[in-house]
Design a protein around this nucleic acid. Structure first.
Lengths: 346, 346
DNA sequence: CTGAAAGCGCTTACAG
DNA sequence: CTGAAAGCGCTTACAG
């Protein structure tokens, strides 16, 4: 490929002049400008971004590490979209990389992006890595180690309030439970994702706390656990139905599991919401297309990622970081046909 | 950050020696090796990949351009996953970039990756760009222009059989229609995505050809068109039901639209498959969780992408390209509860 | 307004 | 086995 030197020779000027013309970084006579542009045209010249970056000590690039493999949810794709928008608005190129599928895959991937000299790196934390000993400390140490700003999404890092944003999973999971309680439900079942995952622990805690607030005991028979997938939700629900069938409401770790659970309920001859009220979490668009529509909790993806990007940009420009007292974001109930009240029953 | 020169000074050797030790590219005495590794350790040195790439004239990176925004489908995420796997297996780093959301966004994004000197670039073609004048020729010209191998996924490029793989959309869309015909259906409706998109045109053609093969006329009242989304499928189906309600089968552009259509059918008091047999296309996992399960056509994502990667790697290593006579991939029917036969009705 | 030179952080012939 | 030097393709003070 043609280099800047080729252009300079063809245009009969120095490479430094070519550079200045192309970057508009100095006053240049129209004549030489024309010559340069013509040479560029004729040679179909395009600058080598690698060389530019090395020389400028800056890549104008933001790296984003996302989890590998797991079918991309609407939630995650909205999150990516929002990162992209912000990157665009700030003239940064967004480079997306999937975390390696290994115990230390997250760390490796972050490093790979730093080694490529991204100006900043966003890491979307996935619970998968918790099962592989990726602790809070490892992430916090990385943040300390790097000159490059690193912001962690979806993981609370107390040591670095200015480098992390997360969802308040406890609260988000408690919302539907509280709502059911208010509607007079007493026997409320819960389907959890694998409890090795922090997110799953937190959401179960939300369920438990909501019950406790109403001075109800947690019945272990009303809690089931499975992989986080449609199929997992289906299996967990079948397990619940084997344990007992007297629950009148069922809250799930997320929408996918609720969708699986709905199928199991129907197969068991139970109707929603007449027999069982049902809640998911994430509020994916598809919930509207089940019968009944599945109620859920909307995640504040928008605000969440916006704040993460603000932190990132603040670090990048050495500006004061935005107020970080509220890095834990919580969502809102979205009611659909899958819920009914027991209050006017008495 | 510490540079190789820092390491060399600390270890008391030349930078060239440090380079050799780190890359294992020459016999080095154990003593100097030890000294180098210790210095690396102490300085927490990490090589600058930018500088390496510039110097080696190779980045060991494969770029992948995917469409922006549109909620990521299971199909696309499987496709990405497969690219990732192949990249991993060949020791390449996969850099994912979303196409800019502009008329020439695809071209810009490909260029951006080439400018970053990816060793090869994969472009997943999205119909969005066809509405913005991204023609076959533009892509073909790019392939001719670049030294860097470019493989286009999801777009037929006759001039470059060794640089493109695509799905046989005509055939894939005809499969469910043929099946319905064999089961005795005569009035078969179709829901299309916007017909500005080539994919949508092709699938409609598949529908039409299947009917023609049975010497049935195409009734325009049985064809409806909308955005490709759940909601679009819902609206298109309502439109159909307004036109006429005597169809006994309904085939859709994809699964999402079929899911929307199912809702509209149910709202109209029609049951599936008793009144209407229903087909989607893509075979997403979620289809099992509707009632009835929605029949579909599985896309051969796996073979499809594998072949694309083989082409890419062949170009990359200057090896002979694999047999490209069959770059058009077709899928298979997947039957679920949403279809019934009219044959034993007579 | 423009050029020569140094530098970004590596790799790799070329010598010894 | 190891070093000095040139080179990858740019940018940017430093002069003029």
């Amino acid at each position: 490929m043609a280099t800047m030197q080729d252009v300079s020779r063809r245009a009969g000027v120095a490479v430094s002049t070519v550079s200045r013309v192309l970057n508009g970084t100095a006053k240049i006579s129209q004549a030489t400008k024309d010559a340069v542009f013509q040479a560029v045209e004729e040679l179909n010249y395009r600058p080598n971004v690698l060389a530019q970056s090395l020389s400028k000590q800056q890549t104008n690039t933001i790296g984003l590490v996302i989890p590998r493999g797991a079918a991309v949810s609407q939630y995650l794709s909205q999150l990516i979209e929002k990162c992209q928008e912000t990157a665009d608005q700030n003239g940064k190129f967004l480079l997306i990389s999937q975390a390696f599928n290994q115990p230390d895959g997250a760390v490796q991937s972050i490093r790979a992006l730093v080694d490529r000299r991204c100006d900043a790196v966003l890491y979307y934390h996935n619970s998968f890595f918790e099962q592989n000993n990726l602790s809070e400390d490892v992430l916090s140490d990385l943040i300390d180690e790097f000159q490059v700003p690193l912001v962690v999404i979806n993981r609370q890092l107390p040591r670095h309030p200015n480098h992390s944003v997360w969802l308040d999973n406890v609260k988000n999971a408690s919302l539907p439970v509280e709502y059911c309680l208010k509607q007079g439900h007493q026997r409320i079942a819960y389907i959890a994702a694998p409890l090795k995952q922090k997110t799953s622990q937190d959401r179960l805690l939300g369920y438990q706390q909501a019950l406790a607030a109403y001075e109800l005991e947690v019945d272990p028979l009303l809690i089931s656990q499975a992989e986080r997938s449609y199929q997992g939700g289906y299996q967990a629900c079948r397990q619940l139905l084997q344990n007992s069938t007297d629950f009148t409401a069922l809250c799930c770790f997320n929408d996918q599991m609720a969708i699986g659970a709905l199928k199991a309920l129907h197969e068991a001859g139970l109707s929603v919401p007449e027999d069982v009220s049902l809640f998911g979490l994430d509020n994916e668009d598809i919930l509207d297309f089940f019968e009944p529509g599945i109620s859920s909790v909307s995640q504040p993806t928008h605000e969440f990622v916006t704040h993460a990007m603000q932190l990132l940009l603040a670090h990048l420009t050495n500006s004061p970081v935005p107020d970080s007292r509220h890095n834990a974001f919580s969502g809102q109930l979205v009611l659909r046909g899958s819920v009914r009240s027991l209050n006017n029953k008495s």
